[in-house]
């Protein structure tokens, strides 16, 4: 107990460097676990399909198919890190897609429409944040209202799907830059960019550190003079904005907007974030982990495709993995509570 005090043990450098790693990066362990699961799945699939599974185009397609989910997961990570939850993201993505598509149909240029879509998402996020922060409404109820609102508004725009013909929106998806067998689309780059920006925000700004502080202990964060109220509000705005951007990407991906898009996507997003090692009680987790979580999700989907079995197994497997991670988290939290 006292070894870390005044006179640290100098005898064993090997042990202490490992110890040092553990004390610095213990919260990365769930991320490594997610990576291990990902690797194990790939190896397992590779063996099962006699080496006929893994290929550069396949990996490229996982990023392509899940770029919208990746963007949503980044936003969700911010909210969950504060100890909240945002159930509205799927509906907001769908609504902004509908709204954007209808504006494009009316002849507005995509340079105007895309920012409007982001703003719509941000606005709904702001509303949820206000309910949570200033009226003490539980996050899941507040975001539920946001989900209802966005779902309904999507149908207000149109009951049927709207085809998107705008070339610059479609360009996001159609253009593929090839590097040998590998390829990447603008949506993929956009998603990776969001991950990078999210990671930098969380690691290198006061806003980011306050997000962690709020999730760790809101009261303490306030005592330290950190802007708690503004930060919590902003977390929902970030999530809403990401949902708006996901709306753009998803519209590009499907080439059309449909009001029933994205049902259940909020659950996929939460599952991906949790599998990626973010604690649901807040305060611990990484955007990069959420990215791994999304890749795990994508890999499960791909493998199930390869197996040719029913796609419903995706949901069941994700549910099972989510349960596994939640139980493990519960054990970790219980153990650290006992240590105190």
């Amino acid at each position: 107990m006292t070894s870390t005090q005044v006179a640290p043990a100098r005898e064993s450098h090997v042990v202490s460097s490992r110890h040092r790693f553990m004390t610095r990066h213990a919260s990365w362990i769930p991320v490594f676990a997610a990576i291990a699961i990902l690797v194990a799945m790939v190896i397992g699939a590779q063996i099962y399909f006699d080496g006929d599974f893994l290929s550069p185009p396949l990996i490229s397609s996982i990023l392509l198919d899940n770029s919208y989910l990746l963007i949503l997961a980044v936003g969700m990570t911010f909210v969950i890190l504060t100890g909240g939850i945002d159930l509205s993201v799927g509906a907001v993505m769908s609504f902004t897609g509908m709204f954007g598509a209808s504006l494009l149909r009316d002849g507005l240029p995509s340079g105007v429409v895309a920012p409007v879509m982001l703003a719509c998402g941000a606005l709904i996020g702001l509303g949820i944040g206000v309910l949570v922060q200033y009226f003490d409404v539980q996050p899941f109820i507040a975001s539920l209202a946001g989900m209802f609102l966005a779902r309904g508004l999507g149908f207000v725009v149109s009951l049927n799907s709207i085809k998107v013909t705008d070339s610059s929106i479609l360009w996001l998806q159609r253009t593929r830059w090839h590097f040998g067998d590998w390829y990447v689309t603008a949506t993929g780059i956009l998603a990776l960019l969001v991950v990078a920006v999210g990671a930098l925000l969380l690691a290198y700004t006061r806003f980011g550190r306050t997000i962690y502080a709020v999730g760790g202990n809101e009261q303490s964060a306030r005592l330290m003079g950190l802007p708690v109220a503004r930060t919590k509000l902003l977390a929902y705005v970030v999530s809403g904005t990401c949902a708006g951007l996901a709306g753009v990407v998803f519209t590009a991906y499907t080439g059309a907007a449909y009001p029933l898009n994205g049902i259940g996507t909020e659950l996929d997003t939460i599952a991906a974030v949790v599998i990626g090692g973010t604690l649901l009680i807040g305060g611990s987790g990484f955007v990069v982990g959420s990215m791994i979580g999304v890749f795990v999700y994508g890999m499960i989907k791909t493998i199930i495709n390869f197996l040719g079995v029913d796609q419903s197994w995706t949901r069941i497997t994700i549910g099972g993995l989510l349960l596994l991670f939640v139980v493990v988290q519960r054990v970790i939290v219980a153990r650290s509570a006992r240590r105190r």
Partner: peptide, 27 residues
Amino acid sequence: VLGIQPIIATLVLMLAGRGIALLITGG
């Protein structure tokens, strides 16, 4: 028994339940 938050615990089944239903009906 396990002490998991109700929202999350029931979220698991909310996710997996429809998958199971699809499986039962064969999609």
